[in-house]
């Protein structure tokens, strides 16, 4: 055993053959848009369910000159994002950033950044539950056959029942979509807000589920059709009149915060602001400079 306090790990933590296996499966995932490709999924020093799928993808693709951004809930400073970034930074030494436009690889949980991503960027999504059919068919062997045969009838029935019972397509996140006209895919726990941002995008989207041991991909310029009915269309969370309390944006995904003013006058209240914090910060800064600028 090494006597130094810090052990030397492989660049990108996992061994080269494990990386190679992930790489092979990523290429297959791209060639089969929306299809879940099994991969061996090594154990990482991060718990299963905490982003190990996304991490393995990032570890397999990352190069020393990449610039990395890691977010959780859209937030760079969320504890889990900090933790994953720390592991990747310590085992690769790459530059990290909070600026979406400066990153070459963005690893994320639950959000797609608000700023449109470019063709030279890759978004790596951490996936907890891989299979949209899990709602109707928990058995993997049978669900795999259903995907193979495009046998999606039961899922349509499930969606229809949710409309009848709840008056809405009840699935809030992990909304099922059809990719490139063939495979039904789970959109990870991104909100509906982000679902259509996968459609015909410029960037490549890679999805990794470590515990479920699956990788899937949405290449750029690939069609994404959410499951919906003629008389019941897919809707995002957007509510008319919504506004970010910090930056004033009217077209972003908002999350609620409980706020107590410094004088504790009102005992606190809820307010909504952008979940993409770095984007929100940028806008706050721009607002401040425009206000200060002479007329």
């Amino acid at each position: 055993m090494s006597t130094t306090p810090e052990q030397l790990y492989n660049f990108g933590f996992i061994d080269e053959d494990s990386k190679r296996e992930v790489r092979r499966q990523i290429l297959k995932a791209i060639a089969l848009p929306g299809h879940q490709v099994p991969f061996a999924s090594r154990d990482l020093p991060i718990a299963r369910g905490w982003g190990t799928g996304g991490l393995q993808i990032t570890m397999a693709i990352i190069d020393a000159d990449d610039t990395l951004k890691v977010i959780d809930q859209g937030d760079d400073e969320s504890v889990n994002a900090v933790n994953l970034r720390r592991l990747l930074q310590r085992t690769t030494g790459v530059t990290t950033t909070v600026d979406t436009t400066a990153a070459s690889i963005i690893q994320t949980r639950h959000r797609i950044p608000e700023e449109p991503m470019r063709r030279d960027q890759i978004l790596v999504l951490q996936v907890p539950m891989v299979d949209p059919l899990r709602w109707v068919e928990p058995n993997l062997e049978r669900a795999t056959i259903m995907h193979g045969e495009s046998d999606y009838g039961r899922m349509w029935v499930y969606m229809y029942e949710s409309v009848v019972k709840a008056g809405d397509l009840r699935i809030a996140t992990q909304y099922p979509v059809i990719v490139a006209g063939r495979y039904m895919m789970d959109t990870t726990p991104i909100p509906r807000w982000d679902v259509m941002r996968l459609h015909n995008a410029e960037a490549l989207f890679l999805f990794g589920a470590g515990r479920e041991k699956r990788i899937y991909a949405v290449p750029p310029y690939t069609t994404i059709e959410p499951l919906q009915f003629e008389d019941f269309r897919f809707k995002t969370e957007f509510v008319a009149g919504q506004i970010c309390a910090r930056c004033g944006a009217q077209d972003t995904f908002l999350t609620s915060h409980f706020v107590v003013d410094s004088d504790h006058a009102d005992g606190g209240h809820w307010r909504s602001s952008c979940s993409d914090t770095s984007f929100c910060d940028k806008r706050v800064l721009v607002n401040a400079t425009t206000q200060e600028a002479p007329q």
Binding site: L8, Y9, F13, R20, I26, L27, I30, A60, Q89, T92
Partner: peptide, 21 residues
């Protein structure tokens, strides 16, 4: 930083993979 610098071959493999990707 607690990683070993990648070998020439590893560097080639990663760079090649990014092109293939």
């Amino acid at each position: 930083t607690t990683f070993q610098p990648p070998s020439l071959f590893e560097t080639f493999c990663t760079a090649t993979f990014r092109v293939l990707l």
